[in-house]
Simulated assay, not measured.
Amino acid sequence: MRLDQKVIIITGSCTGIGKGIAKRCVAEGARVVIHGLEPELGQELVQELGPDNAVLHIEDLATEGVAERLVALAVQTFGRLDAVVNNAAIVASSNLKTTDLAFFRRMLEVNTLAPFALIKAALPQLQQNRGCVLNIGSVNGWSGEPDLLAYSVSKGALMTLTRNLGDTLAREAGVRVNQINPGWVLTENEARRKHEQGLAADWYKDISPVFAPAGRILWPAEIAAAAIYWLADESGPVSGQIVDLEQYPLIGRNPPKN
């Protein structure tokens, strides 16, 4: 097993990509701290994974001291901490006209500052076990869509955090920090958001090849499969890297003509 006996905190893991990563981590031999804001869904996942393999913490990441509580729960429950997956994020539409400072601050607090706080709180344990951090960003972090202003900025800042700490912590503490940037993923929340925006309930079954050359968008399990490499020892000394997980190139692409 690629993650045998490793203990991993995965934020935002009651649903979506985080849930997929948690399930794959346990399948690879890890024990996980499940985190999110949906207690019933979290409990269901813990039962599915097995109480010996998973423990649940429900709390808003913007709350003071949550990072320290997550680390303490991992150590108290499983005796160690080997990795952190900063997956939780607010995904919400906004542009220059609709973005006020309160909204922007909330977005940065959860999507950028919370990952920083958790890395900082976990560092003593990660250094002791020569562990690692995996940040889950977004391809929108490179510039973003017109109506994803605040979200895109928060993910762009996360990329800079990853590159900076991936360099410094690898040299100073033996802790690797990397990031994967998923493209369009069919999570429960994404399916609901698009339906609420006026699309049909089964909108994901008929997507333009401009956006999905493969005829479908990505699945959480596919992001989870990629995450395992970065959490496993097989990724060796690689640190400070950003990897886009999308089905077409972001630079130099020639979209098909309709």
Results as ranks from 00 to 15, higher is better:
Ile90Trp: 00
Ala30Tyr: 04
Thr98Glu: 12
Lys6Arg: 15
Arg80Glu: 10
Leu231Gln: 03
Asn254Leu: 14
Arg171Glu: 11
Gly36Glu: 03
Thr187Ala: 09
Thr98Asn: 03
Ala150Ser: 15
Asn95Trp: 03
Ile119Asp: 03
Val33Glu: 00
Arg171Thr: 04
Ala62Asn: 10
Asp147His: 12
Gly18Val: 09
Met1Asn: 11
Asp244Asn: 15
Val133Trp: 05
Ala201Glu: 14
Leu169Tyr: 10
Gly198Tyr: 10
Pro256Tyr: 08
Ile90Ser: 02
Leu126Met: 09
Gly131Met: 12
Asp82Gln: 05
Gly20His: 07
Ala227Glu: 00
Lys19Pro: 00
Arg163Met: 15
Leu169Gln: 05
Ala173Lys: 15
Lys23Met: 11
Ser154Phe: 05
Tyr204Phe: 15
Ile242Leu: 15
Gln197Pro: 00
Lys155Arg: 02
Gly79Tyr: 13
Ala170Pro: 00
Ala67Met: 11
Cys132Met: 07
Val32Glu: 01
Val110Gly: 01
Ile10Val: 14
Gly137Ile: 11
Ala72His: 09
Ala22Val: 05
Arg24Met: 14
Asp206Asn: 15
Ala214Trp: 12
Leu245Glu: 06
Leu49Tyr: 02
Pro182Glu: 08
Tyr204Lys: 10
Pro146Val: 12
Gly36Asp: 09
Ser138Asn: 07
Ala114Leu: 08
Phe78Ala: 08
Asn129Asp: 03
Asn189Phe: 02
Arg24Tyr: 04
Glu28Asp: 12
Asp100Trp: 01
Ser208Asp: 15
Leu199His: 12
Lys19Trp: 02
Ser93Leu: 10
Lys194Val: 12
Tyr151Ala: 11
Leu161Cys: 08
Trp203Cys: 01
Cys132Gly: 03
Ala121Met: 06
Val26Leu: 10
Asn135Met: 11
Arg2Cys: 01
Cys132Asn: 15
Ala54Gln: 07
Ala173Asp: 11
Pro237Thr: 13
Val210His: 14
Glu48Gly: 05
Thr11Ser: 11
Asp52Ser: 13
Ala117Lys: 15
Gln127Met: 10
Leu96Ala: 13
Phe211Gly: 08
Tyr204Ile: 09
Gly156His: 07
Thr160Gln: 13
His35Phe: 04
Leu118Ala: 04
Pro39Lys: 09
Trp142Thr: 03
Gly50His: 07
Thr15Tyr: 02
Ala225Asn: 09
Gly131Leu: 04
Arg69Gly: 01
Ser138Gly: 07
Gly166Val: 08
Tyr229Lys: 00
